[in-house]
Structures are given as structure tokens and as C-alpha cells.
Simulated scan of single mutants.
Amino acid sequence: MPTPLPVPIAFRLPEGWLPARPEGLEAPGVAFAAVHPQPDAGFSANITVDGEIPPETATLADLADESVEQLRQVAESVQVAGRREVGSAEAPALTQRLVFSAVAGETRRDLVQSQVYLSLQDVADPHKRAVIRLALTATAAQHDAVLGDFQDFVRTVRPDTGTEA
């Protein structure tokens, strides 16, 4: 069963991507998942969405560091290939790219995960800050081919105020 997000969001999947059952991806805490229709050597690139209300003192970099440590518990040779703060003071965000090796199915694979952390205010309670994490996981060979779709997806994510059609 999907884990609810701390604040409602709206988004649009890239063309061709298919909604998936988060529990099928072995990704605890995931609120939404989608898979690319063309697997690479048996591995389907996927987009996942999760979120939390972090402690007030936690920075986006702190949360990104936590993600790296969590991934190290299930994957090998996890490396941060890049990290960048983006967005504005009103809408801060952070991106990071992780490279690692993991067993998916019964095959060891070299994978790349691009993560985007978005800091959003709860529209119902502006004092409450939520962080939404969007992640693209793909084989090293397919990552760059699906990265544009993921970037398009990220651009559509916004708070869901329930007032838009």
C-alpha cells in the first residue's frame, strides 16, 4: 500500500511512463511509482515519489545525506556523483546523482539514481514544511536516455490546492 505524502501534490507523468504499484518496487515509504515501458536488460527505469515532514533544523543536504546512508544499507559502492542546490529562498530544492551497484531480480546491476528534493509549504498550514523526494532509478546504460523524461516530470510537480481542474 502506498505511503501518503505529508502534503498533497499534483504532477503529470511523461508520455509512455506507466503507474506502478510502489510495493512491487521494494521501496518502503513510496507514495507513487511509475515505470518506463522499455526495460534495459530486464531492469525497468522507475520514478518514485515520497515525502516527509523533517525536523525544523534539517537541511535539504541533511536529508540527501540520509538517503545516501539508507541506500548504502541495501546497495554496494554507493557514491555521490553530484549534488547541487537549486530553486530559490522561497522554494529551495536540491538535486543529487548517486551511482551504485545492487541486485535487482537476481542480477547485479550498475544503477544511477537522480534525486530531487523539493521543500514545500503545506497550503493548509503554512508553518509546516514538507520535503518531497522525486527519484529516477535506471541502469547506467539507460539513465541518460530517460533523464529528460524525469526532468519534464519534475517541472510538473506542484502543491495540489484542490482548486485546479
Score class of each variant (00 low, 15 high):
Q113E: 13
P39L: 11
V99M: 00
D50K: 08
A58K: 04
V146E: 05
R84V: 04
F100H: 02
L18F: 07
A165N: 02
Q115I: 02
E106C: 00
F153S: 07
P14R: 11
E76C: 00
R72S: 15
F11Y: 15
G42L: 09
K128Y: 03
F11Q: 09
T57Q: 14
V123D: 14
A91C: 00
I47C: 11
R83D: 02
P55C: 01
L134F: 08
V30E: 08
P37S: 14
L13Q: 11
Y117W: 15
H127E: 11
P2S: 09
L63A: 05
T3Q: 11
V86I: 15
V154M: 06
I132A: 11
R155K: 11
P55A: 09
L94V: 01
R72M: 10
F150Y: 15
T48C: 12
G51M: 07
G16Q: 11
R155I: 00
V99C: 00
R72H: 03
L98M: 02
V68T: 12
V154N: 08
G16P: 14
D144V: 08
T95F: 01
E85P: 01
Q73L: 14
Q38C: 12
P4M: 04
A124I: 06
R97P: 00
P159G: 03
G87D: 07
A33M: 13
V116W: 12
D160R: 01
P28H: 07
A135I: 04
S101E: 07
P55H: 04
T137F: 08
I53Q: 09
H36R: 13
L120R: 05
T95G: 03
A41Y: 09
T139R: 02
V74I: 11
Q70F: 07
D125R: 09
A124N: 12
D40M: 09
A33H: 12
A104S: 06
P126S: 10
V86E: 13
Q151V: 13
P6Y: 03
P6A: 02
A41H: 13
Q113N: 04
V49N: 10
A33L: 12
F43R: 04
P8L: 06
S77G: 03
L13D: 13
P2N: 04
T48A: 13
G29L: 12
S77N: 10
F32G: 08
W17F: 15
S114N: 09
F43K: 04
D110E: 10
S88M: 02
V78C: 05
A138R: 06
E15R: 15
V30W: 06
F100T: 00
S67P: 02
F32I: 12
G29P: 13
V78N: 03
Q73I: 03
G16Y: 13
S101Y: 00
A61G: 09
Q70A: 13
D62N: 04
A81S: 04
D125N: 14
A20E: 11
